[in-house]
Nucleic acid binder design. Sequence first.
DNA 1: TCAAAAGTGTTAAGTTTACACCCATGA
DNA 2: TCATGGGTGTAAACTTAACACTTTTGA
Lengths: 225, 225
Amino acid sequence: MSNYYSSNPKFHISIDCIIFGFHAGELNLLLLHRNFEPAKGEWSLMGGFVQENESVDDAAKRVLAELTGLNNVYMEQVGTFGAINRDPGERVISVAYYALININEYDKHLVEQHNAHWVNINEIPELIFDHKEMVIQARQAMQKKASSEPIGFNLLPELFTLPQLQSLYETIYGETIDKRNFRKRIAEMDYIEKTDKIDKSGSKRGAILYRFNEKVYRKAPKFKL
Amino acid sequence: MSNYYSSNPKFHISIDCIIFGFHAGELNLLLLHRNFEPAKGEWSLMGGFVQENESVDDAAKRVLAELTGLNNVYMEQVGTFGAINRDPGERVISVAYYALININEYDKHLVEQHNAHWVNINEIPELIFDHKEMVIQARQAMQKKASSEPIGFNLLPELFTLPQLQSLYETIYGETIDKRNFRKRIAEMDYIEKTDKIDKSGSKRGAILYRFNEKVYRKAPKFKL
DNA sequence: TCAAAAGTGTTAAGTTTACACCCATGA
DNA sequence: TCATGGGTGTAAACTTAACACTTTTGA
């Protein structure tokens, strides 16, 4: 142990998770009513404290899994929020991560236990501390990333239709996309593979189901939407 | 004070600075020989510990100022590095920031005191811990940002020539740019203002000096290089 | 007078956008 | 049979890329 190190202060480090889900043409966040003081009962991001036996990234994965039961989820670090008084309880430095999950596959029982709810991203309530700012930054980071890397598929089921995919990207960008131009671009991505299955849930005619083939993508990773 | 908070561990939080400078057509980093254990004497980024009386961002500014004497420097957070054993001394979670400075204007006396040196970014020596990874991520983040926001000017003097500016962007991107196409794009940015001064240091003929006008930029912020 | 760097426009290629109708099906 | 959402191609507008010579001046 170095004297130099120990002359410096230590801090609680927390994780906050911006959990994105996509359903029925809408982006949603999984938010919860905080169940401890301060700000007990107010809307909050899912959070937790980094422990001794885990890296910061692992802590983020753990915190996400505690709420959703999910592992191997796509997560990205948004940034670290370190204002002195950001938490009125005591000083906590927080590392924010966003997660993209398939809204059909989380553990509903766990979510209920935490008193968590999906909230439309355009109708976010007041959030505690600097969580609103975290959401804003997460959304921007996600949008930017989604335009240049194929991360959007994490928000969809394994098999998805082109109308679904287009709706997802329209929601992420907050603007409509021309259907034929969209499909032209998708057609050029040979890692978005047509299956012989049809999804009839959205229309009488049914839409062809596609799959994102990550192995094929990795051989020639180019993506732009 | 909440019991819930205090049941969690605390950590040393450090700052590491990736300090970019541009000189003679080359990007450089300001690196130093670490003057305390562990890894004393090895090449390292400038760093320091976050204190109780400062935000994380302020700590980054302080650490940069301690080495360079500079304030009001353009800085961006790169990310937080939280692997358990990233520092073999004891556990330290580090927040990395990059800074863009005008290589003519730092405090050379301070830099000498810290035993710091400018190193060409393509000839970076072995660095301690995960500093190499921080440099890689900082460089990528800076490159991306520099392509869509006018941050490159922070690396140049107040007055600069178009050959200088082009050389800077060629260095940032690691590829050559067509001179006429480059100048065409610059000509469309009315916040890059021609002055009536000539810089004769680079050629016999001399090159016109330009200035980045931030106020004009803010009125219609569009930038793409 | 010549070497060295600064400065200047045009054309072709590629990319992006706009746009309208037919198809398949279940109710 | 008709209402609903799924599926398909082409042409114009715009953007990007390629390219070569003249100017100025100090040595």
